[in-house]
Amino acid sequence: MPRSPLRIFFATGSWAILAFLVLPILVVIPVSLTDTAFIGLPKEHLSLQHFDTFLHSPEWLQATWTSIWIGIIVAAASTALGTAFCIGCWFLSDRAATIARWVMIVPILVPPVVQSLGFYKFWVTLGLIDTHFGVILAHTLLALPYVTISVFAALTNLDRRIPQAARNLGAPLILAIRTVILPSIRPGMITGAIFAFIVSFDEIVGVLFLTVRRVETLPKMIWEGIQESVDPVIAAVATILVILTLLVTAAAVARSYAATKPHPS
């Protein structure tokens, strides 16, 4: 195709915008290797001291572990609830079911501070403030919209006649769901579960409202660290998370290149 001015404009513009999206995030990597006690580029040599601090700090490790296990429970709970919900709505496919689906995505539309205020007042009456269960419950509610969106997307690709055939052949509803529907919507469920885990793992505003001292999550430690002193340990934590994300993204990109390549035959 000829290189028209319009095309050149769009292509250069795009790479510039992508640089704006990605490069600022990568800045945490050199900063985490600094040999100084404050945020900045390494002065004399590279140092892993801030990673060392992270790996030997009971507070940071405890908070990381808390975020991980809360995220796993939230992913499991919201995927279970959300999948059942979507299958029911998919079978019903009426006006009421559509309204129910709108109700489930309300948490996407309500500002985080507003919903956290609502949580706080209710959690006080329920006695859930500063408990792990209180955080898990709040995060499950916040993750449900993402689970229902991705599971329902998987269901719309499913042919209605397939579970119907199973039912006609005498399979009870539960059996039809377990053996016919669940295997075919598994990709949507996995996407939903990953989303749910990340929603919980990154969530900060709710945690700030709902916890005091007993529950410390990783985002809360980072938030407090930024507010107080901007310690390079935060850069080390950020680097670990950014590199994990980079690896996963690189793997996904490589996979999609492999998928588009013609098979050598």
């Binding site: 795009s14 992508l18 999206l21 990605v22 600022p24 995030i25 800045v27 945490v28 900063v31 945020i39 900045g40 990340i198 793992f201 990154d202 900060i204 985002p219 980072i222 938030w223 930024i226 901007v230 935060i234 850069a235 950020a238 998370l241 950014v242 994300t245 980079l246 996963v248 993204t249 690189a250 996904a252 990109v253 999609s256 290149y257 588009t260």
Partner: peptide, 29 residues
Amino acid sequence: PLMLGLVLLPFWVSVLIRSFAWIVLLGRS
């Protein structure tokens, strides 16, 4: 696929860490 990956990469990095990166870049020092 590369461009799509680069658009999605920041999406998966928490807002807190992205804000931290901007503080590191744009702060007084």
